[in-house]
């Protein structure tokens, strides 16, 4: 199992009360499989991804990456960054490309963060960009790219370390239907080729249906 979450719960303080955003979330994902999570805006989808990627700590419950329990222990905390760099790839709605770096450098920075340096990495980055149809724009800066192109670069960046799991937070949210479709197709194809598990948060029913499993987040709980 690539990812397993058990009994996850998260609440946020609001004025005098606490708002319970997620309650008793259980999910698991096998290698090479994909899972989509749908839900209304503000229902806690992004919070769930943050818990799964350990950018936020859950109030209760456990997250396991490849049977390795990610908790707040010192040993785990000290290695969390390294584990995240190798295990996870992230794709966001707003792409978050670094404007000072060109397309190739944006992909390579993720590799460098995982401690991977060298010609092989460059070759892999070029290959990924080529697969994404961005082979001829590797020296472009993000400011000169369209939304669809930026998201392709973001996907290549997420794939560069051959992660076991990709968390995609509404990757087509800023794109039109046709471009969004192309990007989703690329994302699913890449995950399939690399045998990478995918957790996709989306509003789009069609894209959600393209994944192996679809869950719905409502009132803090996951439903089929």
């Amino acid at each position: 199992m690539v990812l397993r979450a058990e009994g996850l719960a998260k609440s946020f303080p609001f004025e005098d009360k606490r708002i319970h955003v997620l309650e008793d979330i259980n999910l698991s994902l096998e290698s090479g499989k994909s899972l989509s999570i749908r839900g209304d805006s503000g229902c806690g989808k992004t919070t769930l991804l943050n818990l799964l990627s350990r950018l936020e700590s859950a109030d209760r419950g456990t997250v396991k990456w490849q049977d390795f329990e990610m908790n707040a222990s010192k040993q785990c905390a000290s290695k969390e960054g390294v584990l995240r760099a190798h295990f996870l790839g992230v794709v966001y709605q707003a792409y978050y490309l670094i404007p000072e770096l060109n397309v190739l450098e944006n992909v390579l920075i993720a590799a460098k963060l995982s401690g991977a340096y060298g010609k092989e990495v460059s070759d892999r980055a070029r290959e990924l960009l080529s697969n994404m149809g961005m082979g001829n724009k590797e020296r472009q800066i993000p400011g000169k790219l369209s939304g669809g192109e930026r998201q392709r670069v973001a996907i290549a960046r997420a794939m560069i370390n051959s992660p076991k799991l990709i968390l995609a937070d509404e990757p087509t949210g800023n794109l039109d239907e046709r471009t969004g479709g192309e990007v989703m197709e690329l994302l699913l194809e890449s995950c399939d080729e690399e045998k990478t598990a995918l957790v996709l948060v989306t509003h789009n029913q069609k894209f959600a249906e393209a994944t192996d499993e679809t869950l719905f987040l409502k009132e803090g709980k996951l439903q089929n």
């Binding site: 000072e100 340096y117 020296r139």
Partner: peptide
């Protein structure tokens, strides 16, 4: 990946340099 290749600069230095002297 084999580490003994050309891109040997640590990412912190690489990013610091690039943020001061951006590509293009």
């Amino acid at each position: 990946i084999d580490h003994a290749f050309s891109m040997k600069i640590h990412w912190t230095l690489y990013l610091a340099w690039k943020q001061l002297f951006p590509s293009k």
